[in-house]
Design a protein around this nucleic acid. Structure first.
Lengths: 236, 236
DNA sequence: CCGAATCCGCAGTGATACTG
DNA sequence: CAGTATCACTGCGGATTCGG
């Protein structure tokens, strides 16, 4: 398990030595949502070989970014979780994810899956801290068989996979067309078109859009740009 | 040149498909400082095989992140430069670099080199925008045979490799011990110990420290932490 | 069923030599 | 200077198997 290094005294090079290998950052992103078991990770990472998943987990554990522990009574089994050092990668993951989201095709490729952790990451990436100043509210989002929450406390966001830790102020239920992915984009579109069910303080739906749907998304949705070139040139 | 994809409709996965392969982000970081020729890149990336450099450059060009053009009259030759889409990666690179810098050993490993682009990236990463609010000043840093500049205009930073585009307000000259790398860390340490020559408005030296040397660096320098464990556990 | 280890074929990578 | 060519190597992808 020797690690090839880049021979540079540089923060970026060091970061890439630790998490630059294939699948590593995706594993960390999935764990950032919540601790997961081996099998959960395996299913959220379509195409990853089993040996690679276990190898990466061992490397990340050795690097001090991932922690392996035995799950408590109810479920049993092995749980993988991020250490504080692993969690401190979040700003970088969000920055990379935001950049890549701008280059994403308007529609998923056939066969693409949508990891729940990816949607919460997108929520964190598009979250407009200025627009949310002073705000406190909790949303829970049900999309297909996926459950997420976003909790804003005095302008600070906490987003995660699963039901909200406290009673949500508004529950948004979004049922995409069969074989349609409940991606962040289609969720926003559905909200704007009134195609979602809501339960709770309904005025928080507009608040949600204000805080989580930046203007450029609004433009993309309203201006009917051609499917291909719209977001393909890097103008985030 | 077919690209393996991750099968996820996710910004992070897309980003990694584009720039996740070995050496790619380091190439982009070097180009973020200034356009470079093939040979400059090759020398700044110790150990990269020539065929890999040319392959990566072609891939990045095809992805629309890098542009290849013929240099104008004086030097001639091929110049590689970032496109706007490539430059839009900078926030993500800085975020990753900042994270990795926290895990960097206190001293370079023997044989490590120090790409100039890495130091300017570090400057951008540690730059304290709040402390610099309203400030306007230009520094030029000579360290060993490396020349960098940092220009702050009304609190906004522009840093790059080479002499400052305008007449610098302060020139800092730092001559490290032979066989010592003029890293950001040793530069800050040298300034604090008064081991640098300055030329220009000398009061801007303190300003430099205030804007570019965050408190935790000050602590690391003063508290004489043991060489190993200090920054190795991820507590940035 | 969960959490892997093992084996194989191949694509991506590394080192060197060579060329327009 | 700016690459291409060659070849050995290793990490990765895919499948199967194996122990709690």
């Amino acid at each position: 398990m020797k690690r090839r290094d880049f021979g540079q005294y540089c923060g970026l090079a060091r970061a890439l030595e630790l998490v630059g290998e294939r699948w590593a950052l995706l594993i960390i992103r999935d764990l950032a949502g919540r601790p997961q078991r081996y099998t959960d990770l395996f299913e959220g990472l379509p195409g990853i070989p089993t040996n690679m998943l276990s190898t990466r987990l061992k490397e990340l554990e050795q690097a001090g970014l991932v922690e392996r522990r035995i799950a408590p009574a109810p479920q049993r089994g092995v749980l993988y979780d991020l250490t504080p050092a692993g969690h401190s990668l979040e700003p970088a993951i969000i920055a990379l994810g935001r950049w890549g989201a701008g280059l994403l095709d308007a529609k998923p490729r056939p066969g693409d899956v949508l990891p729940p952790a990816s949607v919460t990451m997108t929520l964190r990436a598009v979250f407009d801290a200025e627009a949310a100043a002073g705000l406190t509210a909790t949303w829970e989002i049900h999309a297909a068989d996926m459950v997420l929450y976003a909790a804003v406390t005095d302008g600070r966001l906490e987003a995660g996979v699963g039901p909200a830790p406290v009673d949500p102020d508004l529950v948004i239920t979004f049922e995409p067309e069969p074989d349609d992915l409940p991606s962040y984009r289609s969720l926003i579109r559905a909200i704007k078109c009134g195609l979602v069910k809501v339960e709770g303080r309904r005025t928080l739906l507009d608040t949600f859009l204000r805080v989580f749907a930046p203007p450029q998304d609004a433009q993309v949705e309203t201006s009917r740009t051609p499917p291909m070139g719209a977001t393909a040139d890097g103008t985030v």
